[in-house]
Amino acid sequence: MPESPMMIGRVTRCSTRGFVGAMQISENTLPVFGSLCQAEAQGGRSYVVGLVYDISITDDQFARQLAALDEVPQEQIADGQLNRQVPVEFSALAVGFHDDDGFHQSLPPQPPLTLASVFSMVPEDSVDFTSRLHFLQMILNAHQLPVDELLATTLRLSAQARPEEEHERFLLQAGREVARLLAQDLTRLENILRGLRIKE
């Protein structure tokens, strides 16, 4: 477990395949699509590694009424963003877990429980977890998700977690692994490889 991870929310629904977390709105702590996070499981003895694939804000008729106005006072915008009990929901795909033996890239033995804390993964742990790429197959198997964008974004963020001189080497290695996994589907492969380019 990293030394000072940032808590981004608490689990509201979960299974061994993934979990959904909720949080109060705050742009600073909003999780990012494709980022890695960890949720406590097994009474704190392990952490499920999740990959954020969806972030949604609950529909709210009052906010909709305010949004339709020409001008909304700054206090009311701040109230809506900081105070109102409108949680942001984020969904994460389980791609591994961490226990006393370190990171594992397979489904966790148990899901986190309701209200378990969810933390963003610090760069050191992200580098450690993505030093092996078996989890890419788990992403490709998640058919109902925006897999191609998720995979490309995750690899790009994982590259950025490394020192600058290692970015290219990591992306090349990841690109080769993706090519191996998608050897039968060249159109998708091209799409993902295009997404792997770090935007300047």
Binding site: P73, Q74, E75, A78, D79, Q81, L82, N83
Partner: peptide
């Protein structure tokens, strides 16, 4: 408490 014109969250 809403402080009108402050720009701050209530």
């Amino acid at each position: 408490v809403v402080s009108h014109g402050s720009g701050e969250a209530p």
